[in-house]
Design a binder for these strands. Structure first.
Lengths: 191, 191
DNA sequence: CGGGCCTTTGACTGGTTTCAACTTCTGTGG
DNA sequence: CCACAGAAGTTGAAACCAGTCAAAGGCCCG
């Protein structure tokens, strides 16, 4: 059976079958326990992570000391603090496995080498970032357009399984409001 | 004198000098009047735009009928509705020149051809999107962390010349609040 | 079975929006 | 070059969305 990553890459670019093992060799598989950290705020983001199983979240800690989750990465998504990763300088985000998870880590230098050896992958990563860029534009649009309440309702309609899977306080943090308010919205919806 | 685009590309990848004219041939230079549209909501975003002079904004019109600006593109930035552009399907954004502007338009098919002919440019665009992705992460962080008032003060500190250049109602729309409130903030700051 | 974390509920507060009226600026035509 | 109309910016009052704080209830896991 071929890896999830391999399948994913083939969806976007056509890599000769025989190159695949060479490519996969650049990655380090990691098993993470619940709440295990991949990156801690203030450190350099050395790797770009591909999620095979479970899911990750990216967050930071604000002045008041509470965690704000700004992004999740589900199966088949990439995650990194790209400001930190791109310049290999200390960053402002932490990355953590919410549930027990499996990821493939691609170290910065490994990525550079890999891209030299297999330039076709530049296209793959270009498409990944372009897609993320598109997603950001849509997300920002949603944030401007909808009240917090509608953002939740929208999100719940679009990702019903995920809403079940994620703890409410994380979801609230991701949607940009307090757990108390989320609770209120849910109560209103029930009635 | 070499074009702004050429200089910009050379900052990120090393393209042989003799390839440059071939590359530039894929672009269509455009002169835009103030408030001229490059893209209207509901249409397919056929081109990716590089700003040579002046600046663009991307916006949409909400239920109440007012325009929400979600992004600006200054000199040396790229702009497109990437969800629409990537899939060549109708999109949710309009793009407009705020001032009189010059841009280089890269048509979707032209871009694909160009990337086939000069695969090194995949890297260039990968870096552009990665950078935009990084910027989105930072921007979202700012939106979670700061009150609207602080977002303005922050922005004004970081881009003082731009705050002068852009009309206030656009800036308010971009920062996600009403022109009236921006006015109030500025009044408070003066006193 | 117990402790701690998560969720719910309610009262109070304040940042931000809305609406409407007024002032200032800008550009265009006479 | 002035006049004027429309656009952009300001001000203030009322309403509301959402945050904060505190306390109680539910539930998972050791």
């Amino acid at each position: 059976m071929q890896s999830a990553l391999q399948q994913h890459i083939q969806k976007f670019v056509s890599i000769p079958e025989e190159d695949m093992s060479g490519i996969l060799a650049y990655f380090t598989p990691m098993h993470l326990r619940k709440k295990e950290n991949l990156l801690v705020e203030g450190n350099v983001c050395h790797s770009n992570y591909f999620v095979v199983k479970g899911y990750l979240r990216m967050f930071y800690i604000n002045d008041k000391g509470d965690e704000k989750t700004i992004q999740f990465a589900l199966e088949n998504w990439w995650m990194a603090d790209y400001d930190s990763f791109s310049h290999q300088k200390p960053g402002l985000f932490s990355i953590q496995a919410v549930e027990r998870a499996e990821v493939l880590a691609l170290h910065y230098q490994a990525q550079e080498k890999m891209l030299q050896q297999y330039p076709l992958l530049e296209r793959y990563f270009r498409l990944m970032h372009q897609r993320a860029h598109a997603a950001s534009q849509q997300r920002i649009r949603g944030q401007y357009n909808l009240s917090r309440e509608d953002q939740y309702l929208n999100f719940a309609r679009r990702y019903p399984e995920f809403v079940q899977r994620v703890p409410q306080y994380l979801l609230a943090s991701f949607l940009g409001f307090t757990p108390e308010y989320l609770s209120e919205i849910r109560a209103k919806k029930r009635s």
